[in-house]
Design a protein around this nucleic acid. Structure first.
Length: 328
DNA sequence: CATCGATGTTGAG
DNA sequence: TCAACCTCGATGG
């Protein structure tokens, strides 16, 4: 159940462990058999993400597009090398245990570290427990497929299993460009001022509530229900405010905050949206999801800023958490 | 053990 | 607007 940050992390893990290597592809479940056989035996040449979608390219020019949807996940197994950004973030947080397994108590950034060859399994895209990673060190390589594995990608040393995706399809380069053209800007993919301007322009064009538009992937790619609620609280903006009533400053600030939060998410693997936490408070929040957010899943609790009860509304059939007194 | 709900999107009506 | 997709951790009995 990833928002954009997780998908970028997964794409980086593929870049680190699969790009430049020959990949054996299969579909144990069968539903992607044709696509898998089309790319099997080829070199992977690119891996990156836009918003919540990942794109990997093979030497033939074929692409695979993966969208995890609400419960898709990748399981990594084997001798996994860490992406540099992820490794340094983990190092800074002191999360390496005696065995050399890097983990945290809430799982998503659980990753095996660079080091002695050993068997371990790593899940990305959904929460998992540190215990599970530790226990799995006895697994064999390659592991037997568990459940409905839509796509298995394997090198000599690493195996990645994809389960439960909303989308997994073989595309031509032209089709990839078509998909991306329909997506809004993503700070991790489109850097610079142009991306920001594109976002601001689209957001301020329609009278659709800003809380709806932040979830619209053609306005900005990668924001989901958690970041939506948190970004609006951090900006003290009423989620119902029409996009075309937002000031330029408000729209620019929303983008800048998304840039910042997304970068933290990509580095740490967690949606840490609380400000100004230092030392033990930061550690506590990183360890416990209930301490990580201003409003998300805090309905009925008092606002951390003003004490007002956090409200829960349905907006475009998703749960919206917000503070009616801070966000005006 | 059964049931619920989720960090998402599509497409039918 | 809402069911369907298809998975699994959390929750309750």
């Amino acid at each position: 159940m990833p928002e954009g940050h997780s998908v970028h992390r997964i794409a980086r893990q593929f870049a680190r462990n699969f790009v430049g290597r020959t990949v054996v592809a299969s579909s144990p479940q069968g539903r992607f058999a044709a696509g898998a056989s089309a790319v099997s035996g080829q070199n992977m040449v690119e891996s990156w993400a836009v918003g919540k979608q990942m794109f990997i390219k093979f030497e033939s020019g074929d692409w695979i597009r993966v969208h995890l949807g609400i419960y898709g996940a990748w399981d990594f197994a084997g001798s996994i090398e860490l992406d540099a950004t992820i490794a340094s973030a983990n190092g800074r947080m002191g999360q390496t245990n005696a065995r050399g397994t890097v983990f945290d108590t809430d799982g998503e950034n659980s990753l095996s570290s660079i080091g002695a060859p050993r068997k371990s399994r790593v899940r990305m895209g959904e929460q998992t427990t540190a215990g599970r990673v530790g226990e799995s060190t006895t697994a064999v390589f390659p592991p037997n497929p568990v459940g409905q594995v839509r796509l298995r990608l394997m090198t000599d040393s690493v195996c990645a299993d994809l389960r439960g995706p909303t989308a997994c399809e073989l595309l031509t380069e032209e089709q990839v460009l078509g998909v991306i053209a329909r997506l809004g800007p993503d700070p991790q993919h489109d850097s610079g001022k142009l991306a920001q301007e594109k976002f601001v322009e689209r957001l301020r064009k329609k009278s659709t509530p800003v809380g709806v538009q932040l979830m619209d992937q053609s306005v900005v790619a990668g924001i989901g229900n958690v970041y939506r609620a948190e970004i609006l609280f951090r900006a003290w903006i009423d989620p119902y405010k029409p996009g075309n009533k937002l000031s330029l400053d408000e729209a620019n600030a929303l983008w800048k905050d998304w840039v910042k939060l997304l970068a933290i998410g990509v580095e740490t693997g967690q949606m840490m949206t609380m400000d100004g936490l230092r030392g033990k408070k930061w550690e506590a929040a990183m360890a416990n999801r209930a301490d990580r957010h201003w409003v998300y899943k805090r309905d009925g609790l008092s606002c951390r800023k003003c004490g007002t009860n956090i409200r829960l509304d349905m907006m475009a059939s998703r749960k919206l958490y917000w503070c009616p007194s801070c966000q005006t």
